[in-house]
Design a protein around this nucleic acid. Structure first.
Lengths: 205, 205, 205, 205
DNA sequence: TATGAATGAGTCTTCATTCAT
DNA sequence: CATGAATGAAGACTCATTCAT
């Protein structure tokens, strides 16, 4: 590349960056495709999906997967962290509204099923690896976000008092599992119903 | 049982037998050891534990594991079915008491953590294979048992009306996952608390 | 056994003995059943048949097979030697008739298909182990028998002169293989035809 | 070929390609090495040779063998099909010469021993798996080729009339077995002699 | 002695990771 | 940088052989 095109990079970080800053456009596109494909496949078939399969579905070679994610665990992590970042961002936005029931809105969104959340369901519910060990920062951010909303809800009297943010997180993970247990084919409505029942347990008696 | 009815079960083992009737004494002992070891290891480390590891820990050769459980899937199943059988038996006993809240007693027992239930947690929560496909009879028995108790609880007005037996099963699976998510080290009390919150969602508003 | 029944063993060796002299009646019967079953299964499915399968089909436990034939190779050998012994006996009988074409009669009988010879076909044709290494005596006996008949046929001018007994043996092995290649379902007639063509090659031009 | 026809095959490899077209140079080289090693070892020690041994001798890892031949059976097949392809090609060439005795030339070549044919000997003679089931096309091609030459030989009166192409194939298989039976160490001359005697059976009486 | 359960070395196969093209 | 072939350490499973009942 000639020195005539130096003005390209400074404008970059519009979208929340992963670890893909400073990559060539094609490299970034590949990283993104691998990440999305991995989310889809992990969610659908568990963490046992072969990397070669992910590479094939993403339309790249296995070597490319390893260039971006040096080990399989790194790919798990990237998938989970990516989802969590989005949830934290959502929580941030909800916190801005001042709604005392924002906690439930966030939790509902988290459990609202659909392909989008499948990866989180899988990653958290499967518990085959523990996010809190692997990506303490991201997990802490999310828990912290939840803690803020929980605090507010508590002050407004819309949530029971004997529950901690950690427990809320565990219960959300449980809701994921329940939905997943109800079956892939359960449908939005059924899933929402189940999640609703579980979240109802959080309301004051 | 009073000592007045000694002619009923003298030849019968006390615990409900698995598929191990008619085996030689040593074979039954080994089968049992493998099954227990598998429960423990699956619960602790997921379904990915090598069979050779299970064999080693059970103090037998890998061939012995295969004699009793021809494939790894057969071992998963045997573990899960064994646990479910016990739950069904518990449900049977509770049904006999006439307590209208027996449903919650059973669910609490199901979720009551401890090594004993760890395998069910793992087997159901992981959902890496679906019991309802693999052992329809055992799963149906359990659901049926739950349905009976749910019906009674409904008539007594101690459970919300908009929930089905299948949904209760899903919610229990969710509670397993939540407990598991809370961590191996969470302790009985904490686990019971989380399960309690989730089950509270089932009570009438 | 009391000393009052010492007259039993001397009368034994009426049928050509295997290695089963001095066995109890039931033990001998088991040995025989294993041998026949092995012949049948080796012929039908090759030397790879599991010993457990042979045991099961013979209606005995695997331990019993090993009592009589300490290794699998010992069983191969016993099967092959048994067949060869019978062929040598047949050759002996034919040699007594004085028929100059007795060689062809023997060879035809050897190739005459049917279950009876299947084991030899397998054992010789497969050549997965070499009889001449493993049971030099039996093989030498048979070759020697063939040599005698070959010599006589030669003197009568009914066989080509440029062929040795070893080559005749090889050609017979070839005929076995040809019949086997023609298919299990070929039928007596077809098999005889093929064997006939091959043996015709031995006649003087 | 004279130098006057250079425009026919410039871009074509000389040996008929297997399924290795379009492979990278190193991949093709490895595939070839595995194939040749497998031919050699199958011929020398039967189909029971461990894949790991083949890999080791070929100087590749076991995974590489599986990349090219996903199962062991696929490797058997590839070996056998490769040999048959060459024989069909030879038959094709011989058919072009117009020689009425071309059948015998082809059969002699087929039976001509040496390392080259060892694999076919093994594959056909062992009959542990049936080519006609596994690779009907290749086997049919060869039989068809033989049928053509047989027909021509019959019209020229150099072969007996009561023999079919299938029987010729069986007899060739028998000749393989006979040669093999005569021993690895028999030498070209001895092998040719035995094969000659067997093929003589095909000539008119 | 017969049985059949147990053993454990050995087999095929998979797949995360490395490296030549 | 991307590709995809190669690697090789496991993993599930088989089966000849041994040994307790």
């Amino acid at each position: 590349m000639s020195s005539r095109t130096p003005d390209r990079t400074p404008a970059e970080p519009v979208t929340p960056p992963g670890d893909d800053r400073g990559l060539r456009a094609d490299a970034r596109r590949n990283r993104e495709r691998v990440l999305r494909t991995a989310q889809r496949l992990f969610a659908a078939h568990g963490l046992g999906v072969p990397l070669d399969e992910i590479a094939r579905r993403a339309g790249v070679g296995p070597g490319t997967v390893h260039r971006h994610f040096p080990t399989k665990e790194a790919l798990y992590l990237a998938v989970a962290i990516d989802r969590i970042r989005r949830l934290v961002a959502e929580g941030e936005a909800l916190a801005g509204t001042g709604d005392p029931a924002a906690l439930f809105t966030l939790l509902s969104r988290m459990t609202a099923s659909g392909a989008e959340n499948a990866a989180v369901k899988s990653a958290l519910a499967a518990a085959e690896f523990d996010l809190r060990d692997a990506a303490p920062d991201a997990a802490a951010d999310l828990t912290h976000q939840v803690a803020r909303l929980l605090d507010r809800a508590r002050r407004a009297g819309v949530v029971r008092h004997d529950v901690t943010a950690d427990e809320v997180m565990a219960i959300v993970a449980g809701a994921f599992a329940a939905i997943r247990h109800a079956g892939e084919d359960a449908g939005q409505e059924r899933s929402a119903h189940i999640a609703g029942i579980i979240l109802d347990g959080l309301r004051p008696r």
